[in-house]
Amino acid sequence: MRVEEVLEVIGSKESSSVSPWDKVIIAMIRRAKIRFNYKIWIVFDFANTFFMVLTYFLLAFIVKPESISQAGYGQSYFTFALIGIAVSHYVTASLRSLSITLRFEQFHGTLESVLSTPTSFIIIFLGDVLYYFLYSTAFLVLIIGIGLALNAALVINLETMLTLSILVILLVLANLPIGIISAAMVLRFKQGDPIGWLITWINNLLSGVFFPVLLLPTQLRFVSLLLPLTFSLDAIRYSLIWGANLLHSRIIRDILYMVIYIVVGYPISIKIFSIAYDSVRKRGELSAY
């Protein structure tokens, strides 16, 4: 084979018959196969969540109901905490899926190979996000199921489920820009995932996952308004506790906030990721970890 021929093969654009959507599904199955090899983490994740739900079920017996009703979330602390636990799983998924993928490939020395394939990294990433989204949805169903078995005061009907689906998609989309920035840091600095962890903790503390935001001091309450999870949680709680749909004024307000995060967040995060990606490629550090 002549050199020109080899160059032609390498330089030719892949004329694959596989559609981008099929590639996303393949990437998702690939991630699922890898994750399900680590059964210990899945068992740990489920057991942890199961016992966490039971813990808050028991803790609710000694909570003053008025502190929950003052915040507008009914009388049941268990229902309040149950929704917080279920929804925060999606945030962890959207914040950390890309950085976990990058770190995994980086650590096993396969990042360069993955990025050298004709398949765009965005497709592989979307496959991963889809996997984590479905995984978190399984958690949501499990948690709601346990909650209902323990008499959580949830309004479950077609309208609230439709509202919940849209709010969850907006929640993931609103949090993904922070996930993209976190991944850019992993790519550039090759250190665990400090931003992902930090935002996950700040979310747990300030977004009202375990207690109403009203309990926070004024300054911290202002910080909580900068977190998309605060609005997602408020809307989801309002829908599942009071049966409100997408046309309710409070839910419309929360959706508007999430749309602002999406519109502002994506251009900024993609720009930061591109800078980190180009810098790593120029330095030839794609395979370093």
Binding site: V63, K64, I68, Y77, I202, L205, F210, F211
Partner: peptide
């Protein structure tokens, strides 16, 4: 950070407890 935030969460939860 994990230690600090874990304790802070239960600090705020303590306001809910009777």
């Amino acid at each position: 950070i994990d230690i600090t935030i874990s304790v802070l969460i239960y600090y705020f939860v303590s306001f809910l407890i009777s």
